[in-house]
C-alpha cells in the first residue's frame, strides 16, 4: 500500500527528510514503523511514540487505507 509519511524532530534528522511517499509491504502501523525504522536507522522504540493518521491521534491497531498520511510522533517537548 502507498502512504505519505511525515517526520518531525529526531526522526526527521535520522530520515534526512521531512516527508516521503512509501510503497510499503506493511499493512498495519506497527510493522510500517518497523519497516521505515530499519531503513532509516531510527533509534526510538515504538513504545515511546504516538501515531497520527490523517491528522488524528490513533491507536496502533488503527486500520490503514491507501494514501493515508501517517506521522510517527516522538515524545513532545513544547512549552
Amino acid at each position: 500500500m502507498k502512504f505519505r509519511l511525515l517526520y518531525f524532530a529526531s526522526l526527521a534528522d535520522c530520515a534526512g527528510c521531512a516527508a516521503e511517499s512509501v510503497d510499503a509491504r506493511a499493512s498495519d502501523l506497527a510493522s510500517l514503523y518497523d519497516e521505515v525504522r530499519q531503513r532509516h536507522d531510527f533509534n526510538l522504540d515504538r513504545e515511546r511514540l504516538r501515531v497520527a493518521v490523517n491528522g488524528h491521534i490513533v491507536a496502533w491497531d488503527h486500520p490503514l487505507n491507501e494514501d493515508d498520511e501517517i506521522v510517527f510522533l516522538p515524545p513532545v517537548s513544547g512549552g
Binding site: 524532530a9 529526531s10 526522526l11 534528522d13 535520522c14 531510527f42 533509534n43 526510538l44 516522538p74 515524545p75 513532545v76 517537548s77
Partner: peptide, 14 residues
C-alpha cells in the same frame, strides 16, 4: 539537540 518533555536530551538525536 532535540529535547524530551522532562528537558533531558532525546536519544534519537544524531
Amino acid at each position: 539537540g532535540w529535547l524530551h518533555p522532562d528537558n533531558t536530551p532525546a536519544d534519537g538525536g544524531r
